[in-house]
Design a protein around this nucleic acid. Structure first.
Lengths: 344, 344
DNA sequence: GTTAGCACTCATCAGGGTCGAGTGCTAATT
DNA sequence: AATTAGCACTCGACCCTGATGAGTGCTAAC
């Protein structure tokens, strides 16, 4: 089912045109393109074949042709090798992001904005899964009579905190001592392992059972269990600039998507572990994305944790640019976030 | 320029109807309402008067009448006294929000969601201005070789943090000692005063000049100066459900508004210190809000700090409900956030 | 195998007619 | 004097129509 060279060339021309104009492409238009040395009639015959093969579709009898998802798929697969981002742009992006020192949230925020800006589509970045991170320090800071802020510093400089209740008579020296102890016990373990470790600690030392109970509860509840996904969205309204979203219903559907961040994160993450994954139109499970394409990539933090970044645009998006941009951006994020992390 | 009773009644009927239907209201419609004992003809005469007085407008000759901003203003002023939120709803909201323990961010997030949900308009809440908060504790937690997380706990349990650079040979005991010292020096002062205090400390003790320099720089840069406004938005897409936003251009304008949070915060905050302020249509400075109304209220945190909450909806919004909801919500937030704060 | 020619299709748009909601005015009623 | 009924008038919404033009498929000529 491989296309001969001329068909492929014509199909490519049609897709290229459609990516820009979002209008059905006619035979005349194709034949006028440079590099295409055939008359409209010839093109028509080929287009007719392509339609039969399922690569093109006609919105109505006397309209031009529109590429099908199958066509995009072919196009995308054939194009992935040849990236295209100019060096100045790269430098600019890297500079902007690296200016955000440290905090993972900030880096991701900056990256999402840059990605949306560079592609002119909507971008989404999911922070690394927290359960898989290794704890480096645990520290409690008194906030109030009876409450303290528990801070967990993990590898890769990702920091999580939660308010916990403490006994009223606890001094800050006391808290410090306990923090040191917890750090000793927990460091180098993942958050997911915390529960078992606590079980052991509880047996070993009877000290401050009540406080430890509170700490453990907070860790489980706030840091492990229902921790909402950390997910950042850039350029939410970018897609409204494209004609396919001039229908208010579609726009609304699309925008509501971002209100449920957990679902969004879930969707982004099942990219099957591919380095770069592209889902076109109906290849997406979510209804609101049925006429969008979603390009996702993975970035790494240190040696174990990883996160996902994605771009959502119309099916006729500029895949070449998006893919290379994602590739580049993934590397930048990895570099920024792993830079912090010296060994554990 | 006060309206006689009948005119007022007719005007109110028109506004009430328009709030629901978003369609020009005709004399017949008004006359059919219960409580209005007049024929369409009579109503027409009154409506004609009201138009002359500037309370009504006609989109075109043979259409019904539409309330002007002046009418809304009158309506709103006359209605502010009589709140309307049912007790179960109140209980539900209070319960939902109080479930978010502690962290200011969480409370505000929850409140914004609730507010948007209860009103079916878009809600905005600005966190208390950080400069005016009093410091309760300063604590540094080592993160990495050469970097630490500085945490500033302020009154009202609002917590700010920033990554700072520290000398490589700093131990955690060392950091703890310095934290204690900083806490002693800074507690009970506002962030805005930090600079002067540092000047004094610098003279008094020569210890660890380099670290202190870093701390001070971080405080100034990250916590005082360009700290972006903490602002939370709920129900961004809610307004898309109203016919006045079925125009994609308007929708886009409106949505882009939320991308510049600083401007948004600035606008919310200049409500002239009123308890509840309502800006209708052109009373708003921002173009994107020219055909919206903005209702803002103030909440307090402890005795000194305060923040703003707001609802954005179409000019024909249900003012009665929104106002009473804002009033209630402001109190809930105040209570939640001040509850934490025992004396400093 | 390629192309020119031609009849055919169909979305888009402007013009024109009808319909109905709503008005303003005038005259009749209370 | 206030209210109401009646009526002519206005104007947007809707539907139908025909013209236009982009684009197609087929056939015959090159």
């Amino acid at each position: 089912m491989i296309l001969d060279e001329r068909k492929a060339m014509i199909l490519k021309a049609i897709i290229d045109d459609y990516i820009i104009t979002a209008m059905p492409v006619g035979s005349r238009t194709v034949s006028r393109k440079k590099g295409v040395g055939f008359s409209p009639a010839t093109i028509r015959n080929e287009m007719s074949d392509l339609e039969e093969l399922g690569y093109l579709a006609q919105p109505h009898t006397s309209a031009g042709r529109v590429p099908s998802e199958k066509a995009y798929r072919l196009y995308v697969d054939s194009i992935l090798k040849s990236p295209e981002v100019n060096p100045e742009e790269k430098a600019h992006i890297e500079d902007y992001i690296s200016r955000r020192s440290g905090q993972v949230e900030d880096v991701i925020r900056a990256a999402a904005d840059m990605l949306a800006d560079a592609t002119q589509y909507t971008s989404v970045i999911v922070a690394p899964r927290i359960q898989s991170l290794r704890i480096k320090r645990v520290q409690m800071v008194p906030v109030d009579e009876g409450s303290a802020l528990m801070i967990v510093v993990t590898s890769a400089g990702i920091i999580k905190d939660a308010l916990i209740a403490i006994p009223n008579d606890m001094t800050s020296e006391n808290l410090f001592a306990i923090s040191e102890m917890l750090t000793r016990e927990l460091s180098n373990h993942t958050l997911a392992e915390v529960r078992q470790i606590f079980a052991r600690v509880f047996r070993d030392m009877s000290m401050n059972r009540r406080l430890l109970g509170g700490v453990m509860k907070a860790m489980e509840e706030k840091l492990v269990e229902d921790a909402p996904e950390d997910i950042v969205i850039g350029g939410t309204t970018k897609l409204l600039n494209y004609p396919e979203y001039s229908d208010i219903e579609k726009a609304k559907n699309f925008l509501t998507l971002f209100e449920n961040k957990d679902r969004l994160a879930a969707m982004l993450k099942n990219s099957g572990g591919m380095q770069i994954s592209i889902r076109i139109g109906n290849e997406n499970e979510m209804d609101a994305l049925k006429d969008c394409s979603l390009v996702t990539a993975t970035y790494r933090v240190g040696d174990y944790a990883s996160g996902t970044l994605g771009v959502i645009g119309p099916t006729r998006m500029n895949y070449r640019r998006v893919v290379s941009m994602m590739d580049f951006m993934g590397n930048v994020i990895s570099k920024m976030l792993s830079g912090n992390t010296n060994e554990v």
